[in-house]
Simulated assay, not measured.
Amino acid sequence: MPKSWEGSLAMGLVSFTVVSLILLGVEGNCWQTWAIAVGVAFTATALEAFSKFGIDNLTVPLGSAALSYALVELLL
């Protein structure tokens, strides 16, 4: 079943907000925090939109966590 653009927008905004708040608390306010939050939010939204057979409950958290870890190690 195709996802709605409203649902995708909500997913992106909530993902961005959650990642931003966590990174602001841990790493502080720097450009890397915002870049990581945008990248993870976009990836989480794409994973949620394109995951088939209802496996987005698995792909979104695992994909977001893996990307977050990689970007934090690379940029911070």
Rank of each mutant, 00 (worst) to 15 (best):
T43F: 07
T17V: 14
P61M: 00
A10N: 08
V18K: 02
T45E: 00
I55G: 09
W31T: 13
G7F: 09
E6I: 14
M11T: 13
V60A: 04
S64I: 03
Y69L: 14
G54R: 04
L75Y: 11
V72H: 02
V40I: 08
L76R: 05
L76S: 13
G39F: 06
A46E: 10
T17N: 08
G7R: 12
S20L: 15
A46C: 06
T45V: 08
L24W: 07
Q32W: 05
L75E: 10
M1E: 13
A46N: 05
I22C: 05
V40R: 04
L67C: 07
S4P: 10
V38Y: 04
E6P: 02
L23Y: 02
L62G: 04
V26L: 14
A65S: 13
V38H: 01
D56P: 05
W5Q: 13
T59N: 06
Y69D: 07
S15T: 12
G63E: 08
M1D: 14
L76K: 07
K52F: 07
T45S: 03
G25Q: 05
L9A: 12
A70Y: 11
A46T: 12
Y69E: 00
V26A: 11
L21Y: 09
K3N: 12
G25T: 08
V18Y: 01
M1A: 15
L47W: 02
G25R: 04
P2I: 14
T33Q: 06
V19M: 06
Q32V: 10
G7L: 09
L24Y: 08
L21N: 00
V38C: 05
I36G: 02
A49T: 14
I36S: 03
L24I: 09
I22S: 00
Y69P: 01
V26K: 09
C30I: 11
L47Q: 03
L71I: 03
S64K: 07
L74F: 12
V19P: 00
V60F: 09
